[in-house]
Computed example of a mutant assay.
Amino acid sequence: MSQVRIHNFSISLDGFATGEGQAADAPFGHAGERLHEWMFATRFWHEMVGGPGGSAGADNAFAERYGPGIGAEIMGAGKFGPPGWQDDPGYQGAWGPNPPFHTPVFVLTHRPRPSMRMEGGTTFHFLDATPGEALEQARKAADGQDVRIGGGPTVVRDFVTAGLVDCMHVVQVPIVLGRGVRLWDGLESLEESYDIEAVSTPSGVTHLTFTAKNR
């Protein structure tokens, strides 16, 4: 069976994956872009946005695992757009006409709308579903490839709690946010279900990889 994976999911030292005060001009709230500066410096990111340069070190090696083998993504309403996007029937997501996913993407929302086909192979489907129900649909769309859980932190936490995640890559960034949405709440004793490895890099981040036991 295909695997369920999480990649490049950045958190602060105190466990916040997004800051407080999310808005259209501040998708990560008061955290700004600080959680993702490590990734912006990589060759992976430069290639994804169409520019030259970027580092080819350990951060890049972790970052570039994001894409290969992925056939579908599941994300939460908060990743698709800022608070209130459901009130705009013409809203098409935060990435413009050609989103970077290039696969079917299933957006979990209590206010579903018709699917949207975008440029580059991305089609957004909107579901009011449990993690298990959403994963069933995503696996069908992935056609034997893996399914990526894209975030935000509440969606990641729900899928981990449901025991549906096979591999998870979390990047601990050396900043303290103090407020926002935390990843780890309610996930105590996670080490009993996952083998955990940690790799620190010169950028100051620590890459934490979680691999499900007995899968």
Rank of each mutant, 00 (worst) to 15 (best):
P27E: 07
P68F: 07
P97L: 05
Q92F: 09
V105S: 09
F106P: 08
G96M: 04
R113Y: 04
T103N: 14
G84T: 00
T109V: 02
T109P: 12
S55L: 14
I74V: 15
E33W: 08
A77F: 04
N98F: 03
S115V: 01
D87E: 13
D25T: 11
W45R: 01
R111L: 12
E64Y: 00
A61W: 11
P112H: 05
H110Y: 08
G78K: 09
T42R: 05
P52D: 14
H30R: 10
G69N: 10
Q92T: 13
G50D: 11
P100R: 01
D87T: 11
W95D: 12
F101P: 03
E37L: 14
T103R: 08
P99V: 00
D88W: 03
R43E: 14
A56H: 14
V107T: 02
A31Y: 03
H30F: 04
Q86S: 13
E64F: 03
A31V: 03
G84P: 10
F62V: 00
F106R: 03
H110V: 02
P89W: 04
R111H: 13
G51V: 14
N98G: 10
A41S: 13
G81A: 01
A58F: 05
R65C: 11
E73Y: 14
A77P: 07
G69M: 05
E37F: 06
H46L: 00
L108W: 06
G53Q: 07
E33F: 11
A72T: 01
R111Q: 13
W45V: 02
A58H: 09
F28K: 00
A77D: 14
M39C: 08
